[in-house]
Protein backbone atom coordinates (compact mmCIF):
# COMPACT_ATOMS: atom_id res chain seq x y z
CA UNK A 1 0.00 0.00 0.00
CA UNK A 2 2.71 2.48 1.04
CA UNK A 3 4.89 1.49 -1.90
CA UNK A 4 1.98 1.86 -4.29
CA UNK A 5 1.22 5.38 -3.00
CA UNK A 6 4.88 6.33 -3.27
CA UNK A 7 4.93 5.07 -6.86
CA UNK A 8 1.83 7.14 -7.75
CA UNK A 9 3.47 10.28 -6.34
CA UNK A 10 6.81 9.56 -8.02
CA UNK A 11 5.03 9.16 -11.39
CA UNK A 12 3.15 12.41 -10.82
CA UNK A 13 6.33 14.22 -9.85
CA UNK A 14 8.14 12.88 -12.92
CA UNK A 15 5.14 13.93 -15.02
CA UNK A 16 5.15 17.46 -13.59
CA UNK A 17 8.89 17.71 -14.20
CA UNK A 18 8.62 16.56 -17.82
CA UNK A 19 5.63 18.87 -18.46
CA UNK A 20 7.60 21.79 -17.07
CA UNK A 21 10.87 21.23 -18.91
CA UNK A 22 9.37 20.20 -22.25
CA UNK A 23 6.51 22.77 -21.89
CA UNK A 24 4.00 20.09 -22.89
CA UNK A 25 0.34 21.14 -23.23
CA UNK A 26 -0.69 18.29 -20.86
CA UNK A 27 -0.91 18.48 -17.06
CA UNK A 28 1.75 16.61 -15.07
CA UNK A 29 -0.61 13.95 -13.68
CA UNK A 30 -1.73 12.94 -17.20
CA UNK A 31 1.92 12.46 -18.20
CA UNK A 32 2.38 10.56 -14.91
CA UNK A 33 -0.45 8.25 -16.00
CA UNK A 34 1.36 7.55 -19.28
CA UNK A 35 4.58 6.84 -17.36
CA UNK A 36 2.84 4.38 -15.01
CA UNK A 37 1.16 2.70 -17.98
CA UNK A 38 4.57 2.34 -19.64
CA UNK A 39 5.97 0.78 -16.45
CA UNK A 40 3.05 -1.67 -16.36
CA UNK A 41 3.43 -2.58 -20.04
CA UNK A 42 7.17 -3.14 -19.64
CA UNK A 43 6.29 -5.47 -16.75
CA UNK A 44 8.65 -3.67 -14.39
CA UNK A 45 8.56 -5.06 -10.84
CA UNK A 46 5.80 -2.93 -9.29
CA UNK A 47 4.35 -2.95 -5.75
CA UNK A 48 1.88 -5.80 -5.29
CA UNK A 49 -0.80 -3.55 -3.86
CA UNK A 50 -0.73 -1.31 -6.96
CA UNK A 51 -4.02 -2.69 -8.27
CA UNK A 52 -5.91 -2.46 -4.96
CA UNK A 53 -4.56 1.01 -4.23
CA UNK A 54 -5.60 2.32 -7.65
CA UNK A 55 -9.05 0.74 -7.32
CA UNK A 56 -9.46 2.26 -3.86
CA UNK A 57 -8.56 5.79 -4.92
CA UNK A 58 -10.63 5.59 -8.15
CA UNK A 59 -13.71 4.21 -6.39
CA UNK A 60 -14.18 7.64 -4.80
CA UNK A 61 -12.89 9.77 -7.65
CA UNK A 62 -16.08 11.88 -7.48
CA UNK A 63 -15.22 13.08 -4.00
CA UNK A 64 -11.98 14.66 -5.16
CA UNK A 65 -13.89 17.24 -7.24
CA UNK A 66 -15.85 18.61 -4.28
CA UNK A 67 -13.32 21.29 -3.11
CA UNK A 68 -12.88 22.72 -6.64
CA UNK A 69 -16.64 22.62 -7.12
CA UNK A 70 -17.25 24.53 -3.92
CA UNK A 71 -14.81 27.18 -5.19
CA UNK A 72 -17.03 27.62 -8.21
CA UNK A 73 -20.16 28.20 -6.16
CA UNK A 74 -18.34 31.05 -4.39
CA UNK A 75 -17.83 32.76 -7.74
CA UNK A 76 -21.32 32.48 -9.15
CA UNK A 77 -21.54 36.27 -9.50
CA UNK A 78 -18.94 35.95 -12.27
CA UNK A 79 -21.73 34.56 -14.42
CA UNK A 80 -23.50 37.91 -14.06
CA UNK A 81 -26.40 38.82 -16.34
CA UNK A 82 -25.37 36.11 -18.81
CA UNK A 83 -25.80 33.25 -16.29
CA UNK A 84 -29.00 31.80 -17.76
CA UNK A 85 -27.74 31.83 -21.33
CA UNK A 86 -24.35 30.40 -20.27
CA UNK A 87 -26.17 27.48 -18.63
CA UNK A 88 -28.19 26.91 -21.82
CA UNK A 89 -25.00 26.81 -23.90
CA UNK A 90 -23.26 24.44 -21.46
CA UNK A 91 -26.19 22.01 -21.36
CA UNK A 92 -26.90 21.98 -25.12
CA UNK A 93 -23.24 21.81 -26.10
CA UNK A 94 -22.67 18.96 -23.60
CA UNK A 95 -25.59 16.97 -25.04
CA UNK A 96 -24.46 17.56 -28.64
CA UNK A 97 -20.83 16.62 -27.95
CA UNK A 98 -21.82 13.49 -25.96
CA UNK A 99 -24.09 12.31 -28.78
CA UNK A 100 -21.55 13.02 -31.55
CA UNK A 101 -18.76 11.24 -29.64
CA UNK A 102 -20.73 8.12 -28.68
CA UNK A 103 -22.44 7.77 -32.09
CA UNK A 104 -19.15 8.18 -33.98
CA UNK A 105 -17.49 5.59 -31.74
CA UNK A 106 -20.33 3.09 -32.21
CA UNK A 107 -20.65 3.59 -35.99
CA UNK A 108 -16.93 3.35 -36.67
CA UNK A 109 -16.69 0.32 -34.35
CA UNK A 110 -19.39 -1.43 -36.41
CA UNK A 111 -17.68 -0.35 -39.65
CA UNK A 112 -14.27 -1.75 -38.74
CA UNK A 113 -15.59 -4.57 -36.54
CA UNK A 114 -14.18 -2.92 -33.42
CA UNK A 115 -15.24 -3.54 -29.82
CA UNK A 116 -18.08 -5.91 -30.61
CA UNK A 117 -15.88 -8.20 -32.69
CA UNK A 118 -14.57 -11.39 -31.07
CA UNK A 119 -11.13 -10.99 -29.49
CA UNK A 120 -8.30 -11.40 -31.97
CA UNK A 121 -6.02 -14.39 -31.62
CA UNK A 122 -3.65 -14.05 -28.71
CA UNK A 123 -0.87 -11.67 -29.68
CA UNK A 124 1.25 -12.02 -26.57
Amino acid sequence: MLHAIVLLLVCQLAGETLAHFLSLPLPGPVIGMVLLLAALMLRLPLPQAMGDTADGILRHLSMLFVPAGVGVVQQLDLLGAEGGRLLVVVVLSTVIALAVTALTFTWVAKLVGGTEAPPEEKAE
Binding site: L8, Q12, P29, L36, M41, A54, D55, I57, L64, V70
Partner: peptide, 23 residues
Protein backbone atom coordinates in the same frame (compact mmCIF):
# COMPACT_ATOMS: atom_id res chain seq x y z
CA UNK B 1 -9.68 25.31 1.15
CA UNK B 2 -6.98 25.26 3.84
CA UNK B 3 -8.67 22.05 5.01
CA UNK B 4 -10.16 20.77 1.75
CA UNK B 5 -6.88 21.02 -0.13
CA UNK B 6 -5.90 17.58 1.15
CA UNK B 7 -8.81 16.08 -0.77
CA UNK B 8 -8.13 18.28 -3.80
CA UNK B 9 -4.48 17.20 -3.80
CA UNK B 10 -5.47 13.56 -4.36
CA UNK B 11 -6.71 14.44 -7.87
CA UNK B 12 -3.11 14.19 -9.10
CA UNK B 13 -2.33 10.67 -7.79
CA UNK B 14 -5.85 9.56 -8.83
CA UNK B 15 -5.15 10.67 -12.40
CA UNK B 16 -1.91 8.67 -12.36
CA UNK B 17 -3.83 5.68 -10.97
CA UNK B 18 -6.02 5.65 -14.12
CA UNK B 19 -3.11 3.77 -15.73
CA UNK B 20 -4.07 0.61 -13.79
CA UNK B 21 -7.60 0.04 -15.23
CA UNK B 22 -6.21 1.18 -18.58
CA UNK B 23 -3.58 -1.56 -18.42
Amino acid sequence: FAGAQFVHFLLGPATVALAVPLY
